[in-house]
Amino acid sequence: MNQLFFLSLFLLGFIGMLLNRNLIKLIIGFEIMEASVLLWFISFTNQGGNPPIYLLDKPGMVLNDPLPQALALTAIVIAASNIALFLTLVIELSRYHKASDVDKIKGLRD
């Protein structure tokens, strides 16, 4: 059931990316895809334990897997810098094309 939710989120993001012809909305769709993957990753590895921080006064606690969280953190930062770059390019593009409809910008075709 859980998987179904994240899968539908992923596909929703994908559909949003493909149907929207606005560049900004396109990247929002992509963000939704990315977020769904990360959410799935984190939630799947959550075994109902505590956050992976060792407390000195409570030894022997069950901790969640810390690795996916570290990986997700890295992936988020990477995605964030990618998107910053993308938005920069969109800003630059607006110097040349007032519309942001991808199909009306001829240069994006070929």
């Binding site: 921080i53 901790l63 810390p66 690795l67 969280q69 890295t74």
Partner: peptide, 24 residues
């Protein structure tokens, strides 16, 4: 195997209590 090591001995090996930080 790796995460098992992190969870059980990670803090002793690295001296960091936050395991995510110690991994990162």
């Amino acid at each position: 195997a790796a995460t098992h090591y992190y969870v059980t001995q990670g803090f002793e090996q690295t001296g960091a209590l936050n395991l995510v930080s110690s991994i990162l």
